[in-house]
Design a protein around this nucleic acid. Structure first.
Length: 378
RNA sequence: CCCAAGUCCGCUGAA
């Protein structure tokens, strides 16, 4: 089991579904095929890799599933946006723990509505630090600083995560002085807290202040450097960004994406293309940046080429492609992509993009029809 | 021994 576990985890980080299935098959051939812990890991793995059906199939082989199995299955459905199904499984879960409750709470805050989450939160038999922090973050995301702070004040035993969350809450609602005050007040800080405060400053555009904090930080990790790199890019200090990137001892795909973004913003499209080729790893973000960059310059063919190179499609990249088509007067292609099965999901941004494209094309009737069919409007 | 919370990069729209 200790041999297989890390292999399963690595599939999750690499987003490698084929290898995941291969490992799964290998386990089934071994004498560990009835090992429940490994099965739980497989359920988790399939959930994270976007395959709740396979997650469910593994779950169904368990006799009996334990509480971990149930919780993992709920998370698997929630992670893929199947909140209803997650709730169904949650309701069937015997001997629910506080983890079961926080998992479904998270499902609601992420995909459902906050009202339902609040009802759930209030009716939970137990609440721990996780539950409180999830609710705080949910309010903050909606811009409800007040309720977020009320929860923080009511929270019984605030840990470093809760303190960091409240710093972030103030920061994302543009209350930087209050964020700093909380940061200074918190009884104990860790790597994440430093990075949150750094990111708060980076978002203000005050480079001097950001650099000052960066220099005073007791320790650094790759996120700290990426944040600083992003601050330079954001402020269009491309030379500094490039020089920091070159000096970084460790880089990950976020560092590369940030650099790529820097080249694009600087108008250095060939440098961007060069970085794209040299990157050791790419994510959906990578493709989205380049698709948008080429489209904006009118190189829609290049955008399409990049789009076709994507190993798996995500909604945001598809949206970028939609925008690209729209920008380049290719309404037909935008509509084709939008309605095609290659686009697995459509979010509000997808619908809005098409709506705007139709409207600017002057097609009032089609715009109206599209508007009427939109599942949700903002 | 396996499950849930806070940090860095991407899409539409508002400013």
């Amino acid at each position: 089991a200790s041999y297989w576990a890390p292999l399963i985890q690595s599939c999750c980080t690499a987003r490698d579904l084929p290898r995941a299935r291969h490992i799964h098959a290998q386990i089934m051939l071994s004498d560990l095929k009835n090992n429940r812990m490994l099965a739980n890991l497989l359920v988790e793995m399939y959930g994270k890799l976007g395959s709740p059906v396979r997650a469910r199939a593994v779950f169904d082989t368990l006799n009996p599933p334990n509480i971990f199995s149930w919780n993992i299955l709920v998370a698997a459905y929630a992670h893929n946006g199947h909140v209803e199904e997650a709730k169904r499984v949650f309701d069937l879960t015997p001997h629910k723990t506080v983890v079961s409750w926080t998992t479904i709470l998270q499902a609601y805050t992420r995909h459902g509505n906050l009202e339902q989450a609040k009802i759930l939160f209030d009716s939970m038999p137990d609440r721990n630090a996780f539950s409180w922090t999830i609710m705080m973050a949910a309010y903050s995301e909606r811009g409800d600083l007040l309720n977020s702070k009320i929860l923080f004040d009511k929270m019984p035993r605030r840990n470093v995560v809760a303190w960091t969350a409240i710093v972030k809450v103030y920061a994302e609602n543009e209350h930087i002085p209050e964020a700093k005050e909380m940061y200074d007040t918190m009884p104990h800080r860790d790597m994440v807290s430093y990075n949150v405060m750094l990111s708060a400053y980076a978002g203000t555009g005050n480079l001097a202040q950001t650099e000052d904090l960066f220099e005073k930080m007791p320790e650094y990790d790759i996120v700290s450097f990426n944040t600083m790199l992003g601050a330079y890019v954001h402020e269009e200090r491309f030379a500094r960004a490039k020089s920091l990137f070159d000096r970084m001892l460790y880089r990950n795909v976020v560092s590369w994406n940030t650099l790529l973004r820097g080249f694009v913003q600087a108008g250095e499209i060939e440098q961007a293309a060069c970085a794209y080729e040299r990157m050791p790893e790419r994510t959906g973000v990578t493709f989205t940046i380049l698709i948008g960059a080429y489209a904006l310059l009118g190189y829609i063919k290049e955008s399409e080429k990049i789009f076709e190179q994507m190993p798996y499609l995500d909604t945001v990249s598809c949206n970028a492609m939609l925008v690209g088509f729209a920008q380049n007067s290719r309404l037909e292609q935008a509509l084709t992509l939008f309605h095609s099965t290659t686009m697995l999901e459509r979010n509000t941004a997808s619908w809005n993009t098409i709506l705007a494209a139709l409207a600017s094309h002057g097609n009032l009737e089609a715009t109206r029809n599209h508007f009427k069919t939109m599942p949700e409007k903002d």
